[in-house]
Design a protein around this nucleic acid. Structure first.
Lengths: 263, 263
DNA sequence: TATAAAGGTGAATCCGCAC
DNA sequence: AGTGCGGATTCACCTTTAT
């Protein structure tokens, strides 16, 4: 099995090629199935650039459930018994994803709340500002108790207090956000590196293999490399793979070299 | 339909007695101690003895799902078209509950995170401190857009900035926590009044009817009375009803009388 | 050069009514 | 059900332009 590589292809089909019990961590950022229909305007009459990508469209709940059941089934097979899996989502999809994971035998360890510093407000005053996304963190099953969790390291990272399941992190904006030739965002849902840093620091050791079945522009790979972990990415869109390869090639293994190892 | 009353009986059976389109708000805090304490509920809310093998584990999920499908179906029937429903849970159950609500046609407006000031630490250092519970807030369906939401009031309540979906509230402790004759907590999952205050303030008007199918010690009723709303509670355990009646009788309608009305 | 003002933007299921 | 239009509605952070 090749490591530090990006596989171009269909997520479920490519997962099926990977061997049993072979990766230490899985981070998955699947399509959320947002179901946006109308154009939303800000109070100053500019348009909100919503997620209208084809990869986020599903015909029905049943189709979305079947898709998630398929890729999550493969993920559970591929995961080592000492490994864990993270899946991120919003209220649009995370309840379905979480229920499917339970049905497949995954054992939930935490539901981590990404509490955004700077969420987009609700412009019409019709709801509360949607300020979070949710990460479900699971072991392979109730009986698999010897999973990696770097408790002391995360406590140190958190000012010597036990880290909680609420992570206050800003959106991926500014210099970190990859831009296309037109100056627009290159990917509609790029995640902040701080989020992946916490995921990888807390639940892998140096040299471990991290699998990301929805690699996108490669945030998981970039952070894995910085932290001296290995990565395997699967991504369908060639344009994202090009961006990710270039990004990761330019990454240095510099992330606070000495500090971030569990004692 | 009687208001400001507590109905003793089985949740699903008593919900079935209530008329269509008759309540303005539902707040539900269903049981969620599935695997944790090996207590499971059948669809008729009777307890199931805990079991450990894989087949029965799946059967247990199925029975919990059937139970939730039953009471949530009744809730949707009873709810006015202008009403909304809140359901609170933890990672043990909220994914199943959320998926069922979507399947029944409820339309999620927000997933609100109760971010606890003072959560119990993870003593073994095997997970992150579980610092949240989740509230799913839904309208009756995608097509029902004229639900009550007191946006300006919540903005005022929140220091003149739009309230977000993260609510920082402490656990119910101290004087607020009801104690039994033995000095121990009278109910294992009593919710803080601040939580219910935000729920009721944001999504009802004075004089509205609030239904709580899992009334417990009556936090919903007590806060509803303080805020000049009406309540209907359903509770199976007579000992909790006694506590709740006494509690609500001693409540005064004093909660910042003039201030908390949407302009 | 420094500071201030103006403009852009983020995984968004964001309205109500008349015709 | 679709279309069109009046009217109410926003927070943090980054970039660009102006003073």
């Amino acid at each position: 099995m090749d490591i530090n590589t990006i596989i171009q292809g269909n997520c479920i089909e490519e997962l099926a090629q990977l061997p049993d019990n072979s990766v230490d961590l899985i981070f998955a950022d699947p399509p959320y199935n947002m179901q946006l229909e109308n154009v939303l305007y800000r109070p100053n009459n500019t348009k909100v650039d919503g997620v209208d990508d084809e990869w986020d469209k599903f015909a029905s709940f049943a189709e979305y459930d079947a898709f998630c059941t398929a890729w999550l089934t493969e993920c559970r097979r591929i995961l080592k018994n000492t490994g864990t899996i993270w899946v991120i989502g919003s209220y649009h999809n995370i309840f379905r994803v979480g229920a499917i994971m339970l049905n497949l035998g995954f054992w939930i360890l935490n539901d981590v709340t990404w509490y955004k510093n700077n969420p987009m407000p609700n412009f019409l005053g019709s709801r509360f500002t949607n300020a979070t996304e949710t990460l479900v963190w699971c072991s392979k099953g109730k009986e698999h108790k010897k999973y990696t969790f770097n408790h002391k390291l995360m406590k140190k990272y958190n000012g010597n207090k036990q880290m909680t399941s609420v992570w206050r992190i800003g959106l991926c904006i500014g210099k970190e956000r990859l831009k296309g030739a037109d100056g627009k965002k290159a990917h509609s849902t790029q995640k902040p590196e701080e989020l992946l840093k916490r995921v990888i620091l807390s639940t892998t050791k140096q040299g471990d293999i991290v699998l990301d079945p929805f690699f996108g522009t490669g945030t998981t790979g970039a952070v894995a490399k910085k932290l001296k972990r290995h990565y395997i990415g699967i991504e369908q869109e060639p344009k994202y793979i090009t961006l990710a390869r270039n990004r990761i090639d330019n990454v240095q293994e510099y992330f606070e070299e000495a500090g971030w190892v569990e004692e």
